[in-house]
Simulated assay, not measured.
Amino acid sequence: MYRYEQHCPVARAAEVVTEPWTLLVLRELLRGSERRADIAKGVPRMSASLLTARLRTLTAHGLVAEVPNRAREKRYRLTEAGRGLRPVVDQLGRWGQRWLAPPGLRDLDTELLLRDICAQVERLPDRALTVALTVTDAPGTSRWWIALTPSGATPHPGRPPEADVRAVCTLSGLAGAWLGRHSWLRAVRDRTVVFSGAPDAVRTVLACVGVSRYASRETA
C-alpha cells in the first residue's frame, strides 16, 4: 500500500481505498456480493491473487469482516466503516457519469452491463418472463437471455428454450439507455433497441428495466 505520510484524512483514506481495483471491489461488496466468486464476476479482469490482496487490506483496516459460515469458502461483508463509503462511491459514480465522456465500445462488456441491469430492475413482474437478447456489435458472445421473475432478474449466455420477448440492440444503444444518456423509449424510437413479442409482455419488460443508480434522473 502506498503511503503519503500526511496527517490529512483525505490522504490517509486515499491510502486505503484508491489502490487499483479497490473501489471496484468495494462497489461489488456494496451491491451485496459476499462470496469471492460473486465479487470476481464484477471485476473479471482482476487476478485472483490481487483480489485476495485487496480483501486482506480492506479487512486489516476494518472495512470488511470475514463472515463465519459452515462451508469452507470464506464470505466477506462490509463493516459499519465499509458501509459508510456508500455515499462516496455513489457520488464518484455520479461525477463520472456527469463529467466524463460516454464509454467507448472497448469499455463495454455485455455480461457486466446485463448484470448491472438485472441487479437494479425498476420493479419485478407479476409473472415470469423470458427475454431473448441479441447484441449485434458485441465482441464475444452476442446472444443472451434474461429470466425476469417476481423474485429477481438473471442474465444467461446463449439462447433460451422459449422467449416471451425478443430484443435486438447495439451495445452502445443498450449502454446509453441504461446509463441515462437517453431514455429507453428514445432507444426504441431510434431502433438502437428493438423489441418484439406480445404487446403486453413488451410493455411489462419496459416497465421493469430502470436506469443505473449513477444516471441523472432528469436525462433518463
Results as ranks from 00 to 15, higher is better:
residue 1 M to G: 15
residue 2 Y to E: 13
residue 3 R to E: 11
residue 3 R to F: 12
residue 4 Y to E: 13
residue 9 P to R: 10
residue 9 P to N: 09
residue 15 E to Y: 03
residue 15 E to V: 08
residue 17 V to A: 07
residue 17 V to C: 01
residue 25 V to H: 03
residue 25 V to E: 02
residue 27 R to G: 12
residue 28 E to W: 01
residue 29 L to T: 13
residue 30 L to A: 12
residue 38 D to K: 12
residue 39 I to F: 04
residue 42 G to Y: 04
residue 43 V to F: 02
residue 44 P to F: 03
residue 44 P to D: 08
residue 45 R to L: 12
residue 46 M to E: 13
residue 47 S to Q: 09
residue 48 A to C: 00
residue 49 S to W: 05
residue 50 L to F: 09
residue 52 T to C: 07
residue 54 R to M: 12
residue 58 L to V: 08
residue 63 L to E: 08
residue 64 V to M: 10
residue 64 V to I: 06
residue 66 E to C: 04
residue 67 V to E: 13
residue 68 P to T: 02
residue 71 A to D: 10
residue 72 R to K: 14
residue 79 T to K: 08
residue 79 T to W: 11
residue 81 A to K: 15
residue 81 A to P: 10
residue 84 G to I: 02
residue 84 G to K: 01
residue 88 V to M: 11
residue 89 V to T: 08
residue 90 D to M: 13
residue 91 Q to Y: 06
residue 92 L to S: 08
residue 93 G to Q: 04
residue 96 G to V: 05
residue 97 Q to C: 12
residue 99 W to Y: 15
residue 99 W to H: 15
residue 104 G to T: 14
residue 107 D to F: 05
residue 108 L to P: 06
residue 112 L to C: 01
residue 113 L to E: 03
residue 114 L to Q: 05
residue 116 D to S: 13
residue 116 D to Q: 13
residue 119 A to V: 03
residue 119 A to L: 12
residue 119 A to E: 02
residue 123 R to N: 01
residue 123 R to L: 11
residue 124 L to F: 07
residue 124 L to Q: 14
residue 130 T to E: 11
residue 131 V to T: 10
residue 131 V to F: 06
residue 134 T to I: 00
residue 135 V to T: 07
residue 142 S to M: 07
residue 142 S to Y: 00
residue 144 W to H: 06
residue 145 W to C: 01
residue 145 W to Q: 05
residue 147 A to T: 00
residue 148 L to S: 09
residue 154 T to M: 14
residue 155 P to G: 01
residue 156 H to A: 10
residue 159 R to Y: 08
residue 163 A to E: 13
residue 164 D to E: 10
residue 166 R to C: 05
residue 168 V to M: 07
residue 169 C to Y: 12
residue 172 S to V: 13
residue 176 G to I: 01
residue 178 W to N: 11
residue 179 L to P: 02
residue 179 L to Y: 15
residue 181 R to D: 03
residue 181 R to K: 03
residue 183 S to K: 04
residue 183 S to H: 08
residue 187 A to T: 04
residue 191 R to D: 10
residue 191 R to L: 09
residue 192 T to N: 01
residue 194 V to F: 05
residue 195 F to G: 14
residue 196 S to P: 02
residue 196 S to L: 03
residue 197 G to M: 00
residue 197 G to R: 01
residue 197 G to C: 00
residue 198 A to N: 07
residue 199 P to W: 00
residue 202 V to M: 02
residue 203 R to G: 10
residue 204 T to M: 10
residue 204 T to N: 06
residue 205 V to G: 00
residue 209 V to F: 11
residue 213 R to S: 13
residue 213 R to C: 03
residue 214 Y to Q: 01
residue 216 S to L: 04
residue 216 S to A: 08
residue 217 R to K: 13
residue 219 T to E: 14
